[in-house]
Write a protein that binds this DNA or RNA. Structure first.
Length: 269
DNA sequence: ATCGGGACCTGCTTGC
DNA sequence: TGCAAGCAGGTCCCGA
């Protein structure tokens, strides 16, 4: 489900509802997420004021007067802003209830997501993360350097969070199409110049997806319950066998490390 | 050190 | 129509 644009869309959507609010309580109905939710989350967060709502990679970081709540949406997670008395539905695992009369509700049918209480902004899952793709710390040189001597294919490289964060399966496919690079190409055999193009394509597709409110295929909904509209802008993802918008040739499909991969045999080399 | 594959879950779509 | 298989936006961890 959520890649960087969907997480960023969620962050921007919930931020104005959360800032300066006090947490009146945290209800955990189901703590069996990817990692069990620590029971101390409730007592540590209750009574505190929310001072920031930020994102690092695909993690949401809710800053409190003391400490942080760190949330990952996994494959099927979403956050909604709702009136506090709204009855929970199936898979609504956690509520963060605010003194303003609203609740931030976490839903995650597959339970691949996670919620952590952090005393400080430090966690092993944040330690090894690469640069943010939309920052100046990321460019073609980042990719070229990471790819030196590597035999692995370029799609796996750009989906590796130690190389660059936030690029999941949809946007990896899209960026490689925009850059005209075949996903199966060995990463170490691609020129500086083509990596500059790929880095620019990653930035461009992520920015445009954020502007559109993300991509909604199945589960993903924004904090207000509405879908994002980038689905209509997808050039290759979910279009296997359909004509390439560039040359009309049917798009090819392969699996790369278990993930659906779509590309144009003619436009991507 | 690097890499691929399995594992974790539920729900929806597809094909027999 | 019913059922089982296959597939889905992530990513950690293990064994080769």
């Amino acid at each position: 489900m959520p890649e960087l644009p969907e997480v960023e869309t969620t962050r921007a959507g919930i931020e104005p509802h959360l800032l300066d609010c006090t947490i009146a309580g945290v209800t955990i109905r189901e703590n069996r997420l990817r990692w069990p939710i620590s029971p101390e989350l409730t007592q540590m967060a209750t009574g505190q004021t929310i001072v920031s709502v930020e994102r690092r990679a695909k993690y949401l970081l809710i800053g409190l007067s003391r400490g942080f709540v760190m949330i990952h949406l996994g494959m099927s997670g979403s956050l909604r802003i709702l009136p506090a008395q709204t009855a929970p539905q199936k898979h609504d695992h956690v509520d963060i209830i605010l003194n303003s009369g609203i609740t931030l509700r976490y839903r995650d049918p597959r339970r691949f997501g996670s919620i952590f209480w952090l005393d400080q902004l430090k966690h092993r899952l944040l330690d090894q993360l690469g640069p943010e793709p939309l920052s100046a710390d990321f460019d073609g040189e980042t990719l070229f350097e990471a790819a030196r001597g590597k035999l692995r294919n370029v799609k796996t490289l750009i989906m590796d969070a130690e190389v660059v964060v936030g690029v999941g399966n949809i946007y990896a496919n899209e960026a490689l199409y925009l850059a005209g690079i075949r996903p199966t190409r060995p990463a170490g055999k691609i020129s500086r110049k083509r990596y500059a193009r790929l880095a620019a394509a990653i930035k461009s597709v992520l920015e445009k997806a954020i502007d559109a409110g993300g991509t909604s295929l199945r589960d993903f909904l924004k904090e207000d319950g509405k879908p994002g509209y980038f689905r209509h802008e997808l050039k290759v993802y979910d279009r296997a066998g359909e004509p390439c918008y560039g040359c009309n040739k049917p798009l090819s499909a392969v699996r790369i490390t278990g993930r659906a991969t779509v590309f144009c045999m003619r436009c991507q080399r």
